[in-house]
Amino acid sequence: MILRLEKAWEEMVKRLASWLDSLIINLPNFIIAMLVFVVAIFLSKYVSKLTLRLLEKSSMQRSMKSVIAKIVSILVIFGAIFLILGILDLSKTFNTILAGAGVAGLAVGLALQGALTNTYSGIVLSYIKQIRYGDWIESNDFAGEVISIDLRAVTIRQTDNNLVYLPNKLVLENPIKNFSSTAQSRVIFTCGVGYSSDLEFVRNLVKKTISETFESINSEEEVIFLYTEFGDSSINFETRFYIDSTSALEVLKAKTEAMIAIKKVFDEHDINIPFPIRTLDFPKDFRKPAQGA
């Protein structure tokens, strides 16, 4: 038993000595490999920035330029890995890894199916022209300004300055409403006036007020005024006009300014904006005390 332990100890010492010799012999290669890896990290960042600069003059979208820069950066890292394997004389090991990469790739692909779908969708979104940086869009019940399109999600900034991260797959598969696809946006607001009002006078007054409030409106004819219904307590109307903006926030601001202006001129001309009124009908003898009380 003691002889076996001694032999095992001697064998272990020999192997440790051989490993130490190998480490000392290959120490320069390890140092060079580490330097190559560090240089590759910095080089990938520099190449990414350089790629963005070279693509600035192209007509591609900003998001597509960013995706190309990231791909070039990844290729630099992969090239450095191949070089490191050659320095460490691990090319045979790399061939073995490639041989098993098929099965491993299938397993990883199934596990990362959602992530890969978002990556592919991000590349598609970066290429199409229906959505760009700075556009005001509405998708998946969220609306805001597009500030980023990467390989995972589309980031939009809402009117309250909160950020929403929409997975690329959902944006690509669902309808997208792009408010920035045209040079103008339409403002619509509704109101009502009392039944005693002069309807023609109200119509002319509203159209005149709107045209004078907004510089983008050249004449009263560009303001659409429509009476919509006889309401319970008012005659309701709808006013439509365009402003030179594609931002949903600017549309809300224009609607606010229009409402302030309309309320002011209505007060000046004693035009009433009724509120709902409930009439209670009591029997004539409801105040008489009940018999026997």
Rank of each mutant, 00 (worst) to 15 (best):
R53F: 04
S63R: 08
L52D: 12
Q61F: 12
S59I: 05
T51D: 02
M60I: 09
S59P: 05
V39A: 15
R53A: 06
F30G: 05
S48C: 07
V67K: 09
L50N: 10
K45V: 04
E56G: 01
Y46E: 14
N26R: 08
M60T: 08
V67I: 14
E56D: 03
R62N: 04
M60K: 11
E56F: 03
S44P: 02
P28G: 06
M60D: 11
N29V: 00
R53E: 08
M34R: 08
M60S: 11
L55Q: 04
S63M: 07
F42N: 12
S59Q: 12
L35P: 06
L43Q: 05
T51C: 10
S59F: 13
I41T: 00
V39F: 15
N29E: 04
M64H: 10
Y46S: 14
M34H: 07
Q61Y: 11
I32S: 00
L52N: 08
A40E: 09
L27R: 01
K45A: 13
V38H: 10
T51I: 02
L35D: 10
I31H: 07
K45H: 13
S66T: 02
A33H: 03
F42T: 12
V38K: 09
L55D: 01
K57E: 05
I41G: 00
T51H: 02
M60E: 14
L54C: 01
E56W: 05
F30D: 02
F42I: 11
Y46G: 13
L50R: 14
L54M: 08
I68F: 07
V47S: 15
T51V: 07
F42S: 10
K65I: 04
N29H: 10
L55W: 05
L55E: 01
I32F: 03
N29C: 05
L52Y: 06
I31N: 06
I41N: 00
R62I: 02
R53L: 05
F42A: 13
